[in-house]
Computed example of a mutant assay.
Amino acid sequence: MQRIAVLGAGGAGKTVLARRLGHLLDLPVTHLDQLRYDPAWNVVPEETFTAAQRRLVAGDRWIVDGNSLASLDIRAARADTIIVLDPHPLVCLAGVLRRRLKYRGGQHADGVYDCITLDVLRYVLSYRRRHLPRVLACIQEHGSHAELIHLTSRRDANQLINRIRTDPGRGQP
């Protein structure tokens, strides 16, 4: 586990899991939102976004969390591990709302911007049904060489962290 892509709906726990894995495995963590938006929270041009991802994943050690399906092939092709967080949509919705209460609609320390719109809520609630099949197809096409870890609950994510914590060699090449 040296090059890890963490995927899932908004509120699924991608940022928290990526941060915990980064700490345990001593890997640098990048959140796609940090690459997708400029400091004023404007969307950067697609070429800039994909070029930044290509530079990032060219490295030997990284964790990237985020959901851009349009550029997932870049991350999947280089990842040795792909983690898909797939909790029930209501769990994701609760995660989005919890984040709103904690950060009050602003940008938090990890660079992720808390922005809830009706479109965001629709996306979160329809992710499993509408988006996840396309994510899994992209992983199959571009990341079939990687270990795929599909987690369907926060408990699964905690168990993964505990397994890595008790197996010190888990993150070594």
Rank of each mutant, 00 (worst) to 15 (best):
L7R: 04
R134Q: 15
R3C: 08
R36W: 09
G59E: 07
L90V: 09
L136C: 13
R122T: 07
H142N: 10
C92Y: 01
A70H: 13
P28L: 06
I74V: 15
H108E: 13
D86P: 03
R54L: 09
Q172L: 03
G106A: 12
G143I: 03
T166G: 00
V16G: 08
G8R: 05
D33W: 06
S126P: 00
P168H: 02
H108N: 12
R130G: 09
A58D: 10
R128L: 11
H150W: 06
W41N: 13
P133A: 14
H145L: 01
H88E: 15
P133W: 14
L160C: 04
L160W: 00
S126R: 15
C92M: 09
A70T: 13
I82M: 09
L90D: 15
G143E: 06
R100I: 04
P45V: 08
G66N: 10
R104S: 10
A18Q: 05
F49K: 08
S144K: 05
Q34V: 10
H31S: 07
H108F: 08
H142I: 05
R129D: 10
R165L: 00
L93H: 07
Y37L: 11
H150M: 10
H145D: 10
E141L: 12
T152V: 11
R155I: 05
G59Y: 04
F49I: 04
R170F: 00
F49C: 05
A52N: 11
V91L: 07
Q53N: 12
H145K: 03
R129A: 15
L118R: 15
R154F: 04
L85E: 05
G95D: 03
T152N: 12
R134T: 14
T15G: 14
V124Y: 02
L72K: 08
D60E: 13
W41P: 04
L160P: 01
Q34N: 14
L97F: 08
R98D: 09
I83C: 04
G106T: 08
Y127L: 07
T30G: 06
G59I: 01
L93D: 11
R163S: 02
A137N: 11
H131R: 14
V135K: 04
G22P: 01
I4Y: 01
S153Y: 01
V29A: 09
A76F: 07
T152M: 08
P28M: 06
G143Y: 06
I139W: 04
L35E: 05
R78V: 05
A146I: 01
L69Y: 13
R128C: 11
D119K: 13
L93K: 09
H31Q: 09
A12Q: 08
L125A: 12
N158Q: 13
D114Y: 06
R36F: 12
L21K: 01
A109S: 08
L101Y: 06
P173N: 11
L151Y: 01
R130T: 14
I164V: 05
S126D: 13
R98L: 10
Y37H: 13
R99T: 08
A12P: 03
Y123Q: 12
G13V: 03
P28V: 06
L118C: 11
